[in-house]
Each structure stands twice: as structure tokens, then as C-alpha cells.
Design a binder for these strands. Structure first.
Length: 573
DNA sequence: GCCGTTTTCGGCCCGACTGTTTTCAGTCG
């Protein structure tokens, strides 16, 4: 039983309880618990089996939820959830995804019109039965008809590079306007979350008309969904939705803090305000009617007794405690990256030569790279067998000898095969400067086999790192199920590094596991997995992920000089 | 359902916008 499955059960239960009209704070308790579980690095199944471990010591998990977790681990299901599913069919909660329909309205649709699926909802709306229901009207019915197909297709999140491009383009266009002062992209984009559901852009202005008219007419905007004095919501042609908020300058910091989130972080910050006899909202920090602060984020944090906290850390996963103790980490910066240890050339499935990749890397200020083309198992990508690889390496050596300003290491991205052997023999791997072992195939194997494969790779004396450890593709497919605890222990023991693959569709390790790896003393490498010269540009997303994990430059091996990095390689193995 | 150096009971973050009402509940972020 994976933590994510347990978290999903609590989320599902929260949805159903809400429709069932349960106490909203009880619903929130389940959601909080789901969130705590999602953020855990240890397996709940293991913790539950361990008698010395008290689950109720976890934040947001008390006696009752601890017992429920144990029951889930033991029986594979949650009784309360099964009972509610009998009462409320699965299709009912699907309706929550339609904008404008919340738990109360969905409950009415279910109880009074017996609607229990998106199909029945579409039918009822088409027949005009929604508009006749008390509390509903013509507008709601139209919204349902307009949104239902989009919702039925799902997939409403976007990779961070797409989200940032949209947000920053629109923000910079708004910044050109005379009536607009400061402009800031907020929300999950600013927190550098790996995917974004919608965008938040914040501006200061005395008159919102020009900005809102400009946004409405912007070529990336498809439709205005709502517009008021201070807030406008639009749908972009990409399908993403964006909120524009207009605030006065003295509120800009408070609004940035408020709209950057996360919700969980803000709840704690606002509670701290209440404890100090203050009220915090997007307009500022107030004592009664009196304005205390709000022009900058620093002011807001200071008034609740904290230093400014970098947005990437604002998830209520320990950052507030660190801030309070004055122990916030100095987060890694893109400019601190000196090497890139995962990339491809025309030898396998890249589009640029060794020399072109080296030149592009040097142009971006890198001091060393490792060329890591695919091994032979990846036939689709023209992977290299031992003979071709040795010739490739000879070429790399020759090019390295005549190239100035950057050092090129002989590397290989070696597949860990389904039968838990490596795709190339040890005598070949032994000749490499850098071996990154990866799973590409058989990701759906049972966890035991995945763990066996990773063990073989980590224990191999010539493997330096495990690349994109889970093999996930964000928004497309889940990664392999594996025991991270085993992986950390083996890596720490054998001096093997773990990669944060910087590609926006991977970002694997994720922030939670990268943080845990660091805590086990495992050096992290951030690599682009570039398949072209422009592929180096994704490095920033890997750095974002590392920042979210709370990593500093010292935690990331390829921030070191080549000399220091080589020394680390020698002493680690 | 969780939580506690004000509390083991009574709190639990806060405001904007919409649609359906005719003063506000529901939804959303």
C-alpha cells in the first residue's frame, strides 16, 4: 500500500463527506491528513507495522485517523469510505469538477434530480431541468453545458515551463501599461511547483479598467470568465485559467504573500497573525481597523515574527519552524551550477554533435559536462552497444583534448534491464568517467522486482548515479513503485548519487524525495537530460525543484568545480 | 476530526464574485 493510495482514500472520503453535508471542519481534517501523508517520506505501511511508532504524532493525525490508517494498511480499505460509496455513487463527486458546482449544489442535484453521473447531468441540463430547480437558474445550466465536455476529458494541469511562459508573457505585457505599477506572478508558479492548475498575476493600479480591458483582449486569452473591481478571471487559449488581481501599492506585499500561498502555509501565517491580535488579508495586516503593514512581503513576515520565507518553501512542511529558529537554508541558485551530467548526442537520439553540445554548454557558463548517450536496450533511440560506445568515447576524448573552456566526460546512460542486470558489462562500464543507471522499461513490475533492479544498479562498483529514479512522466504516467527507504540506504552505503532530472515533464526526484535523500547524506545531481543544444535551458526547473526540497549548493554535487567533483567521485565509491 | 504556555471544549483563515435572490448562500482560490 503506497502512501499516495492512502492519501487518495482520505481525499475521496472528504469529497463524499462534503456532499453528505458533514461538518466542514471534519472534512478539512481529512484533507489535512491526506496532505500530511502526501508529504511523508517514510512508508505509512511500514510505520503502521512498527509498534514503537505512534502515527498520531504526525501533524493533523489524531487517535481516530491513526486507527483508520492502520485499518487501511491491514485490510486495504477504509470502511467509512466503502459505506459512503454505497450511499453516493462514484459519478456524483465527478460533478464537483465543474466550475460553479460545489458540494451543496451537487447534493441537491443528486437528491432531488437523482443525477449521479456527468452523462445524466448533461441530459438534465439539455432538457432544461436544472434551471427549474430551486437555487439553480439559467446561468448555472448554461455553465454546466459549456463546461461538461472539457471536464469529462479532465487533464486541467500544465507543466511548469508552459505555465511560467504564459504567466510571464502576460505579466510583461501588463507591465507596459501606464496605469499599472508593480507586476508579479504569484500562485503555484511562483512557488515553482512542478505543475500548475491555474495562474495568478498581481498588479498595483489605481484604475483596473485598462489592465482588465487589455487582458480581455490579449491574444492568449480565449474568454473572460468573471470580472469585478479587483479581480478578473480568464481562460487562455492553452486551456489554462488565470486570475488577475488589482491591489493598491500599500497592499502589494500582503497580496503577494496571500496569493503566492500555499493555502496550508497561509493558514499557519494567518493563525500567527490572530495570535498576535492581528488580522491578515490580501490588503494588509490590521489591528482592528488600523493598518500595520502590507507594502512588502518582508513587512508582513516580520510582523508575525518571522524572516521572509522563499516562495519555493511555502508548503507548511517545516519551513515555518526553520524560519522561527533562524535556520532557513541558503537555497541553491541556477548560477551556482557548474556541470551537467546527463545529455545525448547524435550517437543515440540527440540532435546535436558532441562538439555542438560542448559549445552550447560552455556558452551557458558550464565548466564540465558528461555525454551520456543511451545503451543498446533502448533500440528506439539507437542505443549504443559496447563496440559503438568505445568508439564514441574515443571520439569524446579526442574532442575533449582539442576543446578549450570546458571539460567533456565520457559517460553512459546505462539501462537497468527488467531481469535486474545492467545493459552493458562491467569491463565496459569500468572505462567510463561517469555512469548513470536508469530504469526505462518494465516500470510496472511489482515493487519487489523494481527494488531488486535498483539494488543491483547501486551495488555495481561502476555506477555513479541513478537517473530519474521513478521514471515518471508528469501528467502522463506514474513512475515505478519502489522502496525509497531501501534506495536511500543503499545509495548512502555505496556512495551513489541521485539525480533530479530537470526536464519539466520529469522533475524526478520530486522535492519530497530529494529532501529525504539529502537527509540521508546522499549527494544530489541536477541534470538536464538535454537532447539538443536548447535542451540545456531546462536546468532552471531542476534548480527550482531542488529549492523546493530545501537544498543548498553544497548538497548538489555538480555545483562543485571539476576537481572537487572528481574528488567526490573517488571518495564516494 | 484535530488541537491546546489562555482552552480537554470550542474553536478551526479570509474575502471576492456570481447567481439567485431581494439580502445572501454557495463557490472559489
Amino acid at each position: 500500500m503506497q502512501n499516495s493510495e492512502i492519501a487518495r482514500m482520505f481525499e475521496e472520503l472528504a469529497d463524499l463527506l462534503e456532499i453528505d453535508g458533514a461538518n466542514p471542519f471534519r472534512v478539512r481534517a481529512y484533507r489535512n491528513a491526506a496532505r500530511t501523508i502526501t508529504g511523508l517520506t517514510d512508508s505509512l505501511a511500514d510505520l503502521a507495522a512498527d509498534d514503537s511508532c505512534d502515527l498520531s504524532s504526525l501533524p493533523g493525525i489524531g487517535k481516530d485517523l491513526a486507527a483508520k490508517i492502520v485499518a487501511i494498511v491491514e485490510t486495504g480499505q477504509l470502511e467509512q469510505l466503502e459505506d459512503l460509496k454505497q450511499k453516493i455513487p462514484a459519478g456524483v463527486s465527478d460533478m464537483l469538477r465543474i466550475p460553479g458546482l460545489g458540494p451543496k449544489k451537487v447534493a441537491v442535484l443528486f437528491h432531488e434530480l437523482s443525477i449521479d453521473s456527468l452523462d445524466k447531468l448533461r441530459e438534465a441540463a439539455t432538457q432544461g431541468r436544472i434551471a427549474e430547480t430551486k437555487g439553480f437558474g439559467k446561468k448555472t445550466q448554461e455553465t454546466i453545458l459549456a463546461e461538461i465536455d472539457r471536464v469529462a476529458e479532465a487533464g486541467t494541469r500544465f507543466h511548469i515551463n508552459i505555465a511560467m511562459d504564459e504567466a510571464e508573457q502576460i505579466a510583461s505585457d501588463l507591465a507596459q501599461l501606464k496605469s499599472v505599477g508593480q507586476v508579479q506572478v504569484a500562485g503555484s508558479c511562483r512557488r515553482r511547483q512542478e505543475t500548475a492548475g491555474d495562474l495568478d498575476v498581481l498588479i498595483t493600479s489605481d484604475d483596473s479598467t485598462e489592465a482588465m480591458d487589455t487582458l480581455a483582449a490579449h491574444q492568449r486569452v480565449e474568454k473572460v470568465l468573471a470580472r469585478g473591481e479587483t479581480k478578473q478571471r480568464v481562460r487562455l487559449r492553452s486551456g489554462m485559467e488565470m486570475d488577475l488581481r488589482v491591489v493598491p501599492a500599500e497592499s502589494f506585499g500582503a497580496a503577494m504573500q496571500y496569493f503566492t500561498g500555499s493555502k496550508e502555509h497561509n493558514i499557519v501565517i494567518r493563525r500567527r497573525a490572530v495570535e498576535r491580535g492581528l488580522k491578515l488579508n490580501e490588503y494588509g495586516l490590521f489591528r482592528g481597523e488600523e493598518y500595520i503593514a502590507g507594502a512588502t512581503e518582508e513587512d508582513v513576515y516580520r510582523e508575525v515574527g518571522l524572516p521572509w520565507i522563499p516562495p519555493e518553501l511555502r508548503e507548511n512542511r517545516g519551513e515555518i519552524e526553520l524560519a522561527e529558529a533562524g535556520e532557513l537554508p541558503q537555497l541553491i541558485e541556477l548560477s551556482e551550477m557548474r556541470g551537467d551530467l546527463h545529455m545525448h548526442t547524435t550517437a543515440s537520439d540527440g540532435t546535436a554533435s558532441i562538439e555542438e553540445m560542448a559549445a552550447a554548454a560552455r556558452d551557458r557558463g558550464l565548466e564540465y559536462i558528461a555525454i551520456t548517450d543511451h545503451s543498446k536496450r533502448v533500440t528506439m533511440a539507437n542505443g549504443l552497444d559496447a563496440d559503438r560506445l568505445r568508439k564514441h568515447w574515443a571520439e569524446i576524448e579526442a574532442i575533449n583534448a582539442r576543446t578549450e573552456g570546458i571539460e567533456i566526460l565520457k559517460g553512459i546512460e546505462c539501462d537497468i534491464l527488467e531481469d535486474a542486470t545492467l545493459d552493458l558489462p562491467d569491463d565496459v562500464l569500468a572505462e567510463a568517467d561517469w555512469v548513470v543507471a536508469v530504469l526505462h522499461y518494465g516500470l510496472k513490475q511489482p515493487q519487489e522486482q523494481i527494488d531488486r533492479r535498483l539494488r543491483v544498479a547501486v551495488e555495481n562498483p561502476y555506477v555513479h548515479a541513478i537517473g530519474h529514479p521513478t521514471g515518471r512522466m508528469l501528467l502522463r504516467r506514474e513512475g515505478a513503485h519502489l522502496s525509497f527507504e531501501q534506495l536511500y540506504e543503499l545509495c548512502a552505503q555505496h556512495g551513489v548519487m541521485l539525480e533530479i532530472n530537470a526536464h519539466p515533464s520529469r522533475l524526478d526526484l520530486d522535492d519530497i524525495h530529494a529532501r529525504a535523500a539529502r537527509e540521508h547524506g546522499i549527494p544530489i545531481v541536477i541534470n538536464t537530460d538535454a537532447h539538443s543544444t536548447s535542451g540545456f535551458d531546462v536546468m532552471q526547473y531542476g534548480v527550482f525543484q531542488a529549492r523546493r526540497a530545501g537544498l543548498s549548493a553544497k548538497d548538489v554535487a555538480n555545483t562543485r568545480t571539476l576537481k572537487q567533483f572528481r574528488k567526490l567521485l573517488r571518495t564516494a565509491k
